[in-house]
């Protein structure tokens, strides 16, 4: 187990190294680093000082070493707009995004799993057909459009829920979160619902396919032959088997949701790092962009690692040592 995790960590560092190289090439070689890292409002003296400080007068490989040194010590440059270190800015916004992501994931599981189990168990029933038709919409409707409709219906027409910003936050177990206050939860509902829509459809379809496939397996018939009730067959035997692909997908989707939070945050003016990156792109606040990319890559790597470990816990047939990783 430890060996496996260590090996995966090593691989992760390789991926991270490659990503840093790509980001570096993108920013330093393709783009103009002077333009990227030095505020357009800076005067000539500041500009030259900054060029020297960033080592831009040195050869490319030396620049990369500089960049890497900075990155390793957490220094990814300062935001032009906010004049604070880019990394610090990202970290300030991270909790709001994480909260939104987790809420969306929980929501999509809480609705997608039961819907998928039902649709897989009774594929011919009318409700199943409605569920499946709904899931097609969940797949094909662009997320920003769904967000607009949610605002139009629940905020503008019905006036039930707020449509912009994050509500009051409180602390639960030392974590600052929207879940602690009523206003926080109210503000969270629409964005989370919006962000969960695609995954809800995905989980519904995946669960349904898994249930249908597993229901045909011999072990299901055998479990019934033992006199088990349908409930136990479904929720213990079948469920434990479909859980494996679902956990994998949830893990992979975690990253997707994190990325798509960009859209949701923009629509609902949610103060997370997704909104920050869009604002930064519009304002050419490039140090923030670079910091964002590296942080997201690291999060991706961590998520993939967690999924692999979970996978091996759930499926007794998979031994971590045997995995090629």
């Amino acid at each position: 187990m430890t060996v496996f995790i260590l090996r995966r960590l090593m691989q992760s560092f390789v991926v991270l190294f490659i990503m840093s190289l790509l980001v570096f090439v993108g920013v330093y070689a393709i783009g103009d680093p002077v333009e990227i890292f030095i505020s357009p409002e800076a005067d000539q003296i500041e500009r030259e000082r900054a060029i020297a400080a960033l080592g831009l007068d040195k050869p490319l490989w030396a620049q990369y070493v500089y960049f890497l040194q900075g990155a390793l010590s957490g220094d990814l440059g300062r935001s032009f707009r906010f004049s604070i270190p880019a990394l610090e800015l990202i970290m300030q916004r991270l909790p709001a995004t994480l909260e939104l992501t987790v809420a969306a994931m929980i929501l999509s599981l809480a609705i997608g799993l039961p819907a998928g189990i039902y649709a897989g168990f009774r594929p011919e029933s009318r409700l199943s057909k409605v569920i499946m038709a709904g899931s097609i919409f969940g797949f094909s409707l662009p997320s920003f459009w769904v967000g607009l409709m949610l605002i139009l219906v629940f905020a503008v027409e019905l006036g039930w829920l707020p449509s912009t910003g994050r509500g009051e936050v409180g602390t639960i177990l030392g974590v600052t979160t929207s879940f602690a206050t009523v206003s926080g939860i109210q503000h969270l509902i629409l964005p989370a619902l919006n962000l969960s829509f695609f995954n809800m459809a995905l989980i519904t379809r995946l669960t349904r396919a898994g249930v249908r496939e597993n229901m045909l397996m011999d072990y299901v018939k055998y479990a019934r032959a033992k006199g088990l009730g349908m409930r136990r067959v479904m929720f213990v035997h079948v469920f434990k088997n479909i859980l494996i692909p679902i956990v994998t997908v949830v893990g992979i989707q975690m990253g997707q949701v994190l990325a798509f939070a960009v859209v949701t945050e923009q629509i609902f003016a949610w103060p997370g790092m997704g909104k920050l990156i869009i604002d930064s792109i519009s304002n050419l606040d490039r140090p923030v962009i670079v910091a964002y990319l590296l942080v997201v890559v690291i999060m991706f790597i961590v998520i993939n690692l967690v999924v692999d470990v979970l996978y091996s816990v759930l499926d007794p047939r998979v031994r971590l040592q045997d995995m090629k990783g």
Partner: peptide, 19 residues
């Protein structure tokens, strides 16, 4: 594999951010 492990919107964002 590396490409597919990153969400499409993120990659599009990167490209638009750079170009």
């Amino acid at each position: 594999d590396i490409k597919l492990s990153f969400p499409s919107i993120l990659i599009a964002l990167i490209i638009v951010a750079v170009l």
